[in-house]
Design a protein around this nucleic acid. Sequence first.
DNA 1: GGGGAAATGTCTATTTTTTTGACAAATTAC
DNA 2: GTAATTTGTCAAAAAAATAGACATTTCCCC
Lengths: 187, 187
Amino acid sequence: MPGFTKRAIRNSFIKLLNERPVNQITIRDIVEDCGINRNSFYYHYQDMPSMIEEIVLEEVNVIIQEKPAIDSLEECLDVAISFALENRRAAMHLYNSSNRDVFEQYLWRVCEYAVSTYISTAFAEEPVPEEDLGILIRMYKWECFGAVVDWMRAGMKEDIQAIFHRICQLKRGMLEEVIRRSASGEV
Amino acid sequence: MPGFTKRAIRNSFIKLLNERPVNQITIRDIVEDCGINRNSFYYHYQDMPSMIEEIVLEEVNVIIQEKPAIDSLEECLDVAISFALENRRAAMHLYNSSNRDVFEQYLWRVCEYAVSTYISTAFAEEPVPEEDLGILIRMYKWECFGAVVDWMRAGMKEDIQAIFHRICQLKRGMLEEVIRRSASGEV
DNA sequence: GGGGAAATGTCTATTTTTTTGACAAATTAC
DNA sequence: GTAATTTGTCAAAAAAATAGACATTTCCCC
């Protein structure tokens, strides 16, 4: 069962990605960094691009497993951005490369998961119509995703946590409005 | 070349040793913690006791590789105690078990290495007679070793760093005395 | 733009490592 | 004192890692 070697490759890659851009990292570099045979790389991954895709998208599962429940709006955004926050440089190097699409794919999935999980549990007790729930989820997903993309585009210089906090305050007001309206039977 | 599985066993053991005493850790616990087959344990280690011995004494080599040169008295003591400081609970659990001898064996080797390295480089330029050097090394080894053992026996509650600092101050005075005497030709 | 070095992708064969499942003996718990 | 757990050992099979070679591509430098 041990995927130790594969994990070592993963760690080495992320480590190197924190040091320099993707196009300056060779398979040799990775293999030498974790002290394995070059062929062992090809045993686990097809090539560099598919390794990147697998590693990045795998992150979604890791995050989901670690966060089976999401209790607050803040957590939604925190979850969406956790990888980027932990590996700032790596995220930046990924985003500013030909792998941007993979990164956004990852981000999108995390946002989707986080928002759906949060909304469906948060409104489990509330008498909110199905259609409104769907609309809420769609809105949230885009807002989460967009907030992070904006932040990446701006070079991750802004205080993303502060922005999150403000977003959450605004959203809370909206939520209460939704509940209030559905409770009073308005359409 | 990857010793990933063996390393995983090592990490799991130290992790568990930080949680509870040795006699409450089974091979099963270790194997399950790092998600490998039980037989893989026996592939790498004979049994629990010899695993402990190997892991603990291996630490000496790790320390030596990380510290090829030792530049100060403080460093001697720091090196001697580095493992215990990083894994306080584990060290305590080891010391208060039937594996105390292994722990002391480890400690002794580290002290021996640290002191010898330090003394031989520190006095490379000084005109100190060979015999004095040998005596100094022997004295230091015991003082290093003893300081740590005393600390362990007292439950690691004292501020070991402060004690080290004081020891180093005292020793520095002695060193100057040795150099002064040998320089003036006294016996 | 050409030549050389380095990196890639692919292969086959071999070795090492890990797993599976089973067993008797020892230990622990109740 | 017996039942359950853990231990140590084994042989066979599967999986993972290494070695070495090769053609191809990419990259760099002149």
